Amino acid sequence: MTTRSRRETITFKHPFRIKGIDRLLSAGAYEVITDEEMIEGLSFPAFRRVATMIMVPAAGPRSSTMEMISISSVALSDAQRNDASAA
């Protein structure tokens, strides 16, 4: 099965929360990695999302370390929508 990973940077203008992460994240740019697998048997290439991860600063005193946390794509969309509608 063919898989691919897409990386993009998403910017939040306000502190935010994402379901699955138990702390408030600060405003700023975050790298999001999406893993997709090819749907076999079609006459054209099509991919489906199988995982979404976000890189966040690790909790604790060592702010220079990062951790990759698996999140739902719906939770990410909700956080982006909330950020866009924040005053």
Rank of each mutant, 00 (worst) to 15 (best):
S63H: 13
R62H: 11
P61I: 11
D83W: 13
T2Q: 01
F44K: 02
E31V: 15
G41S: 07
N82Y: 08
N82F: 13
D78M: 04
E31Q: 14
S26I: 05
G60P: 03
F12T: 02
R81Y: 14
R4K: 10
G41P: 00
E36C: 03
P15C: 07
A84N: 07
V50E: 14
I21N: 02
S72E: 06
I54C: 00
A87H: 09
E36N: 00
K19N: 09
S85D: 09
M66P: 01
Q80N: 03
A87M: 05
S63I: 11
R4Y: 00
E31M: 15
A87S: 12
S43R: 09
M53H: 12
I39R: 08
I71N: 05
E40C: 02
F12H: 06
E40V: 09
S85R: 15
A29I: 13
E36F: 02
L76T: 06
D35N: 02
P61G: 12
A75G: 04
T52E: 13
D22Y: 10
M38F: 03
T9F: 07
A27I: 08
F16P: 04
I33W: 03
R7K: 13
T9M: 14
M38C: 11
T2N: 03
T65A: 12
T11E: 15
R48F: 08
A79V: 08
G41M: 06
R23Q: 11
M53E: 13
A27V: 08
S77N: 15
M1K: 01
L42K: 07
P45Y: 04
R81G: 04
S73C: 04
T52Y: 03
T3P: 00
A86E: 12
G28M: 12
A51K: 13
R23M: 03
P57R: 05
T2P: 07
G60R: 05
E31Y: 02
Q80G: 04
I18P: 02
E8Y: 00
S77P: 06
G41Q: 06
F12K: 04
I54F: 02
R62F: 11
A58M: 09
S85V: 15
M1I: 01
S72L: 07
I18Y: 13
G28T: 14
I54D: 01
H14Q: 09
S26Y: 06
T52D: 12
S70L: 14
S72K: 01
R4F: 02
G28Q: 10
R23L: 06
E37W: 00
R7V: 10
A29L: 11
I10M: 05
A27D: 11
I69D: 01
R17W: 11
A59L: 10
P57D: 04
A51T: 13
D22E: 11
S43Y: 09
T11G: 07
A79F: 15
S73P: 05
R7D: 14
M55F: 05
S85Q: 14
L76K: 06
I18E: 06
S43K: 10
I21E: 06
S85E: 12
R49F: 02
D22I: 12
S70M: 14
Y30G: 05
R23V: 12
S63M: 09
G41C: 03
S43G: 15
V74F: 11
A75E: 07
E40M: 00
A58V: 10
M68V: 15
I71M: 11
M53Y: 06
D83T: 08
A79M: 09
L76D: 02
A58D: 05
R17H: 08
S73Y: 00
